[in-house]
Structures are given as C-alpha cells and as structure tokens.
C-alpha cells in the first residue's frame, strides 16, 4: 500500500504512516472489541480480556430504541474512559463528519470508527482518511464497499451486520459476501479485474492487492449483532480476524461473565468442547430483533456509500 501520509520530525521517526495505522489493527487480531458507555464498563471489559474498547454514549440497541440524531460522544466521557483503561480506546464519528474525526484525533483516541450506527453527516462522501495520523475502521457489506473504504484510507475493516439487534444474520451475510468477492477474483486476468471493479464499484488497485493476497489487505473484524460466544466463534470460523461486540455484553444479564465467555470463544473458536463449556450458565442474552420486523428506513447497514 502506498505511503500517502505520515510526518517526519527528526530523530522522532515517522509518525502516523499507513504501516503503523494498519499495524495496530494487526495487534488486535484474535481479540474482542467491546462497546462501553462508562469508565466502569470499560474496566469490566478490560478485566474480561477485551483487546480494545469502543467509547460511546449509548450502545446501538439504545440508539435504535430512542431514535433521533446520533452524534459523536461527549469528549469528557471519552476522556474518562481513556483514563480508566490501558488497552486501546476507539470512538465513533458520523460518516463523512471529518470535523468529529479531527476532534477525536485531538483527544488522542487510538482508533476512529466512521460508523453507520451514528446518523450520517454526508450522503455521498466518506471521510478522506489518509491525512489523519489516527487510524480508521469502517464498516462494509461486500468487497466493493470494503475496498472503497480502504482506498479512502481505512486501516481496518469490519462487517456492518445490523447493530443493536443481537441478531448475527446480517454479519454472516456481509462476511460471506466479502469472502465470495475475494474468491471470485482468483484466476482473473487484469482486464477481467477491471471489469469486476466496474461492476462492484471497487477501486482496481485495491482489487489487485486482494487478488494477490487472497484476502483484504487490512485486518477484517466482524460486527453487528454478535450476542453469544457461539456467534463470535461462528464469525471467526467464517474467516474474520476478530470481533466487535456492541450491545451484546452490557445488555445481557451478566456482562462480565458473558464478556469473558466471548473472549474465550474468540480464542478457541475452532474447539467446540471449549465453546460448550464457556457457553453454559451465562444468564439471559440481550433481547434480539428479527431483521424483517425492522422498518426499512431504520436499517443501519444501508447507511454508507
């Protein structure tokens, strides 16, 4: 990947290069990133073994319930969460809202999620993520969307799923779509890749890289609807590098126990005997939503272009 950014200042080395931005995501692999709304939640997540937390004012399930415009969280809340834990802290900005992103960068946040869970601020453009020193993660439903975000500078990708539903079906659909998109590239010559790029809206140069690697050129997590250890292991077996759990933990009956179980299930995703053990006696999972029961204009995954 071309180094389009990064600044040098003498013997301090080069900061914010694409390599160190994508590199942090590589350190998160095999891990669970948890949504938290208070410093106390953040400490519980860390104690459970989360590899990072997402600092939010409301988890997606509450955003869905309460409606209205969902924006970047209060910087004071984000700072208090950053102070509470030693693991990386992520925060969300609205799609296209590059000033919210600038504010999050100024706070020293470790990763920005340009997220469809918040109300989009721009209905055509995503943020140009290259000039930022802080890395971005973006959601996708298929290979075209994933590669467009990578071309804009995303250093990490996640499936969109359907956040706040506790229903993993959309995350599965999106992970499978990305896998299928990459499988399809195998054996294509360059002319065919250019045609595929036209059909899927994918930038050719990123497709070339996907073909060469047989996977996305950045780390790819699952997100949107993961509520149980089995959900996390399902996504891992579908080939993602790790999982985000949003409402699934702190909307459940026993968050710490469930969080620990999901961490274990992500590590031992291919060992059913471990999954059986950690899935037992977790108390009630969050209440789930059937996707067809959600009015079309309230589906979050459709946001993003």
């Amino acid at each position: 990947m071309a180094e389009r950014n990064g600044s040098s200042n003498g013997n301090e080395g080069v900061k914010g290069s694409f390599k160190v931005k994508a590199g942090l995501a590589q350190m998160l692999k095999g891990g669970v990133i948890m949504d938290v709304v208070t410093p106390e939640h953040a400490r519980i997540a860390q104690e459970a073994g989360a590899c990072a937390v997402m600092a939010l004012e409301r988890v997606p399930a509450d955003i869905r319930k309460e409606g209205g415009v969902a924006r970047m969280s209060d910087p004071e809340l984000i700072k208090s969460i950053m102070a509470a834990v030693t693991i990386p802290v992520m925060a969300k900005c609205r799609i296209g809202h590059f000033v919210e992103a600038q504010i999050l960068e100024a706070l020293g946040i470790d990763y920005i999620d340009e997220s469809e869970v918040l109300t989009p601020a721009d209905e055509e453009n995503h943020i140009d993520k290259h000039p930022f020193k802080v890395p971005f993660v973006c959601g996708c439903r298929d290979l075209g969307e994933a590669t467009r975000r990578i071309a804009e500078g995303a250093a990490m990708i996640r499936t969109k799923g359907e956040a706040g539903t506790g229903n993993v079906v959309e995350a599965v659909r999106h992970a499978r779509a990305v896998n299928a998109g990459i499988r399809k590239l195998k054996g294509m010559n360059h002319a065919e890749l250019v045609h595929e790029a036209k059909l899927t809206g994918a930038p050719v140069e990123v497709l070339v890289e996907c073909q060469k690697l047989g996977r996305l050129p950045v780390v790819n997590f699952a997100a949107g609807g993961i509520a149980t250890p089995a959900d996390a292991a399902l996504m891992m077996q579908l080939g993602v590098d790790g999982v985000f759990v949003g409402s699934g933990i702190f909307k459940a009956e026993d968050p710490l126990k469930r969080a620990k179980a999901i961490v274990a299930a992500t590590t031992y995703f291919d060992k059913p005997e471990v999954l059986a053990e950690v899935s037992a006696n977790l108390g009630k999972a969050m209440h789930g939503l059937e996707i067809p029961a959600i009015p079309k204009d309230e589906l979050l995954a459709a946001r993003g272009w």
Binding site: G6, N11, E12, G13, V14, K15, G16, S17, K19, V20, K21, G23, L24, M27, T86, P88, E105, G108, I109, D110, Y111, K133, V134, P135
Partner: peptide
C-alpha cells in the same frame, strides 16, 4: 505505552548489534 498513544506510533531505522549491513526498519506501535 511509554512512547504515547496510537497517534504517537512511529517508524524509525535502527542499528542492531549483530546484524551486519543496513539499518533495520523499526515499526513501533503503542
């Protein structure tokens, strides 16, 4: 995280004892 948070992560060439020849590309992340 003694070098700072993610925004302070950096790359720098290193001289490593026992490695002959050119410097080693050091990638420092948190």
């Amino acid at each position: 995280n003694g070098y700072g948070r993610q925004v302070d992560s950096f790359e720098a060439p290193l001289h490593i004892d026992g490695l002959n020849g050119k410097t080693f590309p050091g990638v420092f992340i948190r």
